[in-house]
Design a protein around this nucleic acid. Structure first.
Length: 259
DNA sequence: ATGACGTGAGTATCACGA
């Protein structure tokens, strides 16, 4: 079972890229972020023509997440549903072949100390509370998407440049660590690839991609039963090339059959 | 130089991304 995640940065601008990627890579599941469209604007017919179905949580202009799957998606939930007033479409969950899959788009945080930064830290703790309420560490859970946090020095192309900057501050790293600990989750791409220079996002500006000036902020955090099944994980740099790409590359993990 | 590149909203230019 191949589970991919991709911050597509507007599905309307990159629908054809997504469809081409689905056809070439044939993931079982593709989690999408930053759709930047309403549910009605999502290219559902194109996805279905490609042999997939999709569950979408969109909104106008910003955010928006989806789960695209070859297999049935059941028990779909949208948002955190924790009683906090929050109109950002940043989380959708569904069960596919016995695995609970979350497609998430964590808040960016803007400037350190800003309201957006506080919202980001709170959003992480709200998500951790949801996971603790819904799951046991023995469940099969995959939390994938754009976490907007680089967890370690190895995940940043220039550590001194990013020190204290949004996506790499200690409170953000601690929030991600708390989230992972809420369900004993593993950052499974990093487990497969301990080598440096592996990033999932590159700035459009200043030749970020050709210089490999990137960050690894798109992850799969998985429970132990899923981690035990992982036999491959890759970042598809090819999808970051060419005319008008997303600034993120797709990341996928391959699981062996459940025993 | 607080820039660069890209998208959406809206039709000039700003908000936002990371």
């Amino acid at each position: 079972m191949k589970i991919a995640t991709w911050n597509i940065n507007s599905i309307r601008a990159r629908g054809e890229r997504m469809l081409a990627w689905l056809k070439e890579h044939q993931p079982d599941v593709l989690c999408l972020q930053e759709l930047k469209c309403t549910d009605e604007q999502f290219p559902m017919l194109d996805v279905q023509a490609a042999g997939y179905r999709a569950e979408v949580f969109g909104q106008k202009t910003y955010n928006g997440v989806a789960i695209v799957s070859k297999h049935a998606i059941t028990d779909v939930t949208r948002g955190l549903n924790d009683g906090v007033e929050d109109d950002h479409a940043r989380l959708i969950a569904g069960t596919v072949q016995g695995i609970r899959i979350y497609s998430l788009y964590a808040p960016n945080g803007q400037e350190v100390g800003s309201p957006a930064y506080q919202y980001k830290l709170q959003w992480y703790d709200r998500l951790g509370a949801l996971l603790k309420a819904k799951h046991q560490p023995t469940d099969s859970v995959v939390l994938c998407g754009d976490f907007n946090v680089a967890p370690q020095d190895i995940d940043v192309w220039n550590v001194p440049l990013f020190a204290g900057q949004t996506l790499f501050t200690e409170p953000e790293k601690a929030a991600l660590k708390r989230l992972a600990e809420s369900l004993a989750l593993t950052d499974v791409y990093r487990k497969v690839h301990p080598e440096p220079g592996k990033y999932s996002w590159w700035d459009y500006r200043m030749l970020g991609f050709p210089k490999n000036h990137g960050l690894r902020i798109d992850h799969h955090w998985v429970t132990a039963s899923v981690a035990a099944r992982v036999n491959a994980a890759e970042i598809d740099r090819e999808a970051r090339k060419g005319k008008l790409p997303s600034d993120h590359a797709p990341v996928w993990v391959q699981l062996s059959e459940a025993t």
